[in-house]
């Protein structure tokens, strides 16, 4: 479904990604791991057309490199950023509705699904999103992206700084997404979660893919874990 080949990305003059190859199949959960600064967020932003890039990004066989971000999003690519960019002055409901690409609920997700999965979003529906807690804001960001009915969602460090109970809820949402046929490209710091929910994993270092394999393969590969993951 997503096929990235020889992806290079730049911030001004600095060359950040040096030829990344990666694939996500239909309905698959794939994790992208690595230490801070490895280039994981940059990979996601490049796929989304938010940074200067070279190389090929194909989505359902169609070349997306060179398209504008909103065009890529309309093709069915969702994005949940690492800094929880909610719209703080808008209400929770307005945030969710802005996730929709048209004026009507379409596709897999309805507002009521979100309210059922996260009742707090319903309780706070008319409150400004800025007053919610960090965990609630993370839920809102995820749900807002889902309201756009993406077929692939790229999620950047969703569990960072969240309480264990909330982390569990996020993991449950991923299960729900998988059961509805949504593919996920996940950047995750917590190795345990990534190993548990992913079908395949990539490890990045210095802007390159240094490992590709299944959770089982990564578990048994001590050298990769030592060299590229543990601090």
């Amino acid at each position: 479904m997503l096929d990235v080949r020889d992806l290079h990305a730049y911030y001004g003059k600095s060359h950040i990604l040096h030829g990344v190859d990666m694939k996500v199949a239909e309905g698959e959960i794939v994790s992208l791991l690595g230490r801070n600064g490895a280039g994981r967020s940059t990979t996601i932003k490049a796929i989304l057309g938010q940074v200067v890039l070279e190389g090929s990004v194909r989505f359902r066989g169609e070349e997306m490199a060179g398209l504008k971000t909103f065009q890529i999003a309309r093709k069915g690519v969702g994005y949940v950023p690492e800094n929880r960019d909610i719209f703080p002055t808008l209400t929770v409901r307005q945030n969710l509705v802005l996730g929709m690409k048209g004026t009507r609920e379409r596709g897999r997700w309805k507002l009521d699904d979100m309210y059922r999965l996260f009742p707090v979003l319903k309780q706070r529906a008319d409150a400004p999103a800025g007053v919610m807690s960090g965990g609630e804001q993370q839920m809102l960001t995820l749900c807002r992206t889902l309201m756009g009915d993406p077929d692939l969602v790229m999620i950047d460090e969703p569990t960072e700084g969240l309480a264990p109970r909330i982390v569990e809820q996020v993991a449950e949402l991923f299960d729900e997404m998988k059961s509805r046929g949504v593919s996920i490209l996940l950047v995750e710091q917590k190795l345990a979660i990534a190993l548990r929910i992913s079908q395949r994993l990539y490890v990045m270092g210095h802007g390159r893919i240094v490992f590709e394999g299944t959770p089982q393969e990564l578990r048994t590969d001590d050298s990769v874990r030592k060299e590229w993951l543990e601090v």
Binding site: L48, Q50, T69, F70, A73, Y79, F87, L98, G148
Partner: peptide, 21 residues
């Protein structure tokens, strides 16, 4: 509401599929 959101978070609004330009 799209305008309001774009005033502060244009990149996020665009990532949701809105033609921010």
């Amino acid at each position: 509401t799209i305008i309001q959101a774009s005033l502060t978070h244009p990149h996020m609004v665009e990532a949701l599929g809105h033609d921010v330009p």
